[in-house]
Amino acid sequence: MAKVLVVTSGKGGVGKTTSTAALGAALAQNGANVVVVDFDVGLRNLDLVMGAERRVVYDLINVVQGDAKLAQALIRDKRIDNLSLLPASQTRDKDALTSEGVERVVNELKEKFDWVICDSPAGIEKGAMLAMRHADVAVVVTNPEVSSVRDSDRIIGMLDSKTAKAEKGERIEKHLLLTRYDPGRAARGEMLNVEDVLEILSIPLLGIIPESEEVLRASNLGSPVTLASPAGTAAKAYFDAARRLGGEKIDVVVPMERKGFLGRLFSRRVA
């Protein structure tokens, strides 16, 4: 049974696109058949992060409006066979998306793939609403800072009321992905700590991605971090998150500042 997952946040710049690419690739590396869909019409980025920007011919809007077939618009990843991208259009805007068109495309994708991962645009307007509309699962990407947490809270409220599932009286499964977590700054009290964020948002934690050079480098190379540096701490955190999405129970490790041998020995855990 295919699952539709939306990666959303409300706030911009918190790591939605990076996380979409990394989670999509990680699920595919674990053997699932995955498509990542860019809903950020007009400001598309997912093609760059996936390293597919030179291969875009047709896009989501063409398919939604019936100008191209889905198979023509899907771009298969060159590194992993079972990972595909449905890019957004850069020359149009969100008004070109229609509710019926999006539903048709999502249903078609569900027949072909195990995971349909929708990369939501920032904001709470039409693009973001349509990206979450047909989701079964939501990953709420949050940075450990007050503005991001409050925007995430707003989005969680909308996931519980504006999605197709919510309107049918069902609950959408929601997970928190804490990104750009800087152990040093957290230790000095310059960032919200994990417990604070969890207490405010009160949804289960999917993973903590440390702030990392590897993530930045991977994005600029056009490769999801789980492919570019699979042995790194960020990639490992994404791999664990992907396995938790698949239903496995794995403890979340809070990244700690490396203070030598002792610091590494005592790592704190959050259930």
Binding site: V146, R150, D151, D153, R154, G157, D160, I200, S202
Partner: peptide, 27 residues
């Protein structure tokens, strides 16, 4: 029986309101 999320507004003029969760900043 659920948290009131940021941006949500609950108005109940006829009497008392009991909330089992938290009221978020901006709610």
């Amino acid at each position: 029986d659920q948290p009131i999320r940021s941006g949500q507004s609950v108005v109940f003029e006829r009497g008392d309101v009991t909330v089992l969760g938290s009221i978020a900043s901006g709610a």
